[in-house]
């Protein structure tokens, strides 16, 4: 008795595993922790996760193109600082947003130029720029107390209630949707996937892989910048090191969502589901009063278990698809 084609298609769908896991964990907490599902709580905790959601989309893109942008967390923090500083200088909301996103984009350009131009390893280069960004934020916060702007318009960017949630959440959702569309429905996205699957075959097929990779880093940096603006706008305060470790959460989220570190495989919305899954765990445990250290360990275990489960499901799906393929082209079993 083998399951049918519909089943193989369901479990073969990227993201099915993480979506099911998210629903299960969400349901579990909703039943066991009464406060969990309260609308106010839910809204608050999603708003808190906005920066992570945005850089998860960013890091997923660079992983899919076959690299990795570890600098997103620190760049997000620095961009938040620069953006808030601009706002506190009284320059108004538009220049403040541009300053934040621009800082991120600048880091993206630098990452891209070094990685593509000098053909250096993505991991090492972005580990370097991570520290540069983190250091710059320390310098900035050491000079100026980034403790709040009087510009209400700036604060309103992320905080305005809209459609039952906040603008920050809506912007993050829009980023996820746009990034998904970019990857799935544009020629650029196709080139990203091809490059991630193999630089050499992609080059032979006529793709300018260097350019594609460079652009991915610019997009990644810009998103980190945008995430920083949303963070600064919501908290109206930026401290050094407040975003340290974000990049690792984002990598974990992407991997949980089925984005392969080998490149080429996975999608944005699956990665975002991975981020939501981790966020749900964190929130649930917090409400249950679990020690944060234990929570960190459980998260770590979840990642490993999740990756193993994802791979097993994928193998099963491949086998089933192969069987269907065989049948449909009439190859003997």
């Amino acid at each position: 008795m083998m399951p049918g084609r519909r089943f193989s298609r369901l479990i073969g769908t990227d993201g099915a595993a993480i979506a099911i896991a998210l629903l299960l964990v969400g349901a579990l907490f909703a039943v066991t922790v009464p406060e969990f599902a309260a609308v106010g709580n839910l809204r608050y905790f999603v708003a808190e996760e906005v920066p992570i959601l945005v850089i998860t989309a960013a890091i997923a893109l660079t992983i899919i193109v076959g690299g990795i942008d570890l600098s997103v967390g620190a760049v997000l923090g620095l961009s938040a600082g620069v953006s808030l500083w601009t706002s506190m200088s009284g320059l108004g909301p538009v220049p403040s947003v541009l300053a934040g996103v621009g800082t991120g984009a600048l880091f993206g350009v630098v990452n891209g130029l070094i990685i593509v131009g000098l053909r250096l390893n993505d991991f090492i280069v972005t580990l370097g720029t991570l520290n540069v960004a983190a250091g710059l934020l320390v310098v900035l916060t050491g000079r100026i107390q980034l403790t709040g702007t009087d510009d209400d318009a700036y604060v309103a960017i992320a905080r305005t209630p809209l459609l039952g949630v906040t603008t920050g959440i809506l912007i993050a959702a829009a980023v996820a949707v746009l990034m998904h569309l970019l990857l799935r429905y544009t020629t650029f996205g196709r080139r990203v996937r091809a490059t991630g699957l193999g630089v050499e075959p992609a080059r032979v097929a006529g793709i300018d892989t260097g350019r594609v990779k460079f652009l991915c880093y610019v997009v990644s940096g810009s998103l980190a910048g945008l995430g920083g603006v949303l963070l600064a706008s919501r908290l109206n305060s930026v401290q050094a090191a407040m975003t340290s470790g974000y990049e690792l959460t984002a990598v974990a989220a992407a991997v949980l969502g089925g984005v392969s570190l080998a490149g080429g495989r996975g999608g944005i919305w699956q990665a975002v589901l991975g981020a939501l899954f981790l966020a749900t765990l964190r929130q649930g445990f917090r409400l249950l009063g679990v020690d944060p250290m234990i929570f960190a360990m459980i998260t770590g275990l979840c990642i490993i278990v999740g990756v193993v489960a994802d791979r097993s499901l994928r193998d099963l799906a491949n086998r089933l698809t192969l069987r269907d393929t065989r049948r449909s082209i009439g190859v003997a079993q």
Binding site: T187, R190, R191, R193, A194, L197, G198, E200, P201, A202, V204, A205, G206, I207, G264, R265
Partner: peptide, 21 residues
């Protein structure tokens, strides 16, 4: 296998990739 196909992409995606325009 190393230079020709992009195995994880579909037949259609492999054929169109050199001239996406």
């Amino acid at each position: 296998k190393q230079l020709g196909i992009l195995g994880e992409l579909t037949v259609a995606e492999n054929i169109s990739v050199s001239r996406l325009r």
